[in-house]
């Protein structure tokens, strides 16, 4: 009996949002969320990398690491695969869209060390997803992250002119917004029926 892939897709976007319920990818989330445009750009890049690396690492893990009995090296191998994909993505973006390249600027190399991507890859292994499910999980988690960062950036832009108490501006207000968003996202749990 398999959990249907669609449930995994929606689950990973909403109720099991990689950022709002597993806290992964917070660093770039907090630092880039000031600007809506670059937030969307980074979100798309992350989605893209997740969608490629999750099934790729599934193959690497199940075809190379498991038969050789070297699964304890998975951290190194996964992060290297991710680094390679990010490098390629960086070259492609630089060639095709100079504006996007400049707006993302220093954040692109940071995708390698974005916890969300490695996190999704490790969760995929721990939850023993099948290959098909890992594709859906990768895409879903990416979209979920994109959704969360876009919403946060939009909300922050909206309140940017408001006067906040001393100490709340910056990180604290972002965290409060994320907390409220997390509760809202959790409200969807149970919406996908079992079986």
């Amino acid at each position: 009996m398999n959990i249907s892939s669609i449930a995994i897709l929606f689950g990973s976007i909403i109720t099991g949002n990689i950022l709002l319920s597993y806290y992964l990818g917070m660093c770039s989330f907090l630092s880039i969320s000031r600007e809506l445009k670059s937030a969307i750009g980074l979100g798309v890049a992350v989605t893209f990398v997740m969608a490629i690396t999750t099934p790729l690492n599934w193959i690497v893990y199940n075809i190379i690491l498991v038969p050789l009995n070297i699964t304890y090296l998975r951290f190194i191998v996964f992060i290297m695969v991710i680094a390679g994909i990010v490098q390629i993505l960086e070259m492609i973006i630089e060639r095709f869209s100079q504006t996007l390249y400049y707006s993302l600027g220093i954040f692109l190399p940071l995708i390698t060390v974005n916890c969300a991507i490695l996190g999704v890859n490790l969760f995929m292994i721990i939850r023993q997803y099948s290959f098909i499910n890992s594709i859906f999980y990768g895409i879903g988690s990416g979209i979920g992250w994109l959704l969360a960062i876009t919403l946060l950036a939009a909300i922050k832009q909206k309140i940017s002119k408001n006067i906040l108490p001393k100490g709340v501006e910056g990180a604290a207000i972002s965290l409060i917004i994320s907390g409220i968003m997390a509760i809202a996202f959790m409200g969807f749990s149970g919406i996908i029926p079992i079986n």
């Binding site: 604290a172 409060i176 959790m186």
Partner: peptide, 15 residues
């Protein structure tokens, strides 16, 4: 759950 951690950290940073 997750929101608790967000609120708590926000509160601590604020203080």
């Amino acid at each position: 759950m997750a929101p608790g951690a967000f609120f708590l950290l926000a509160l601590i940073i604020w203080i």
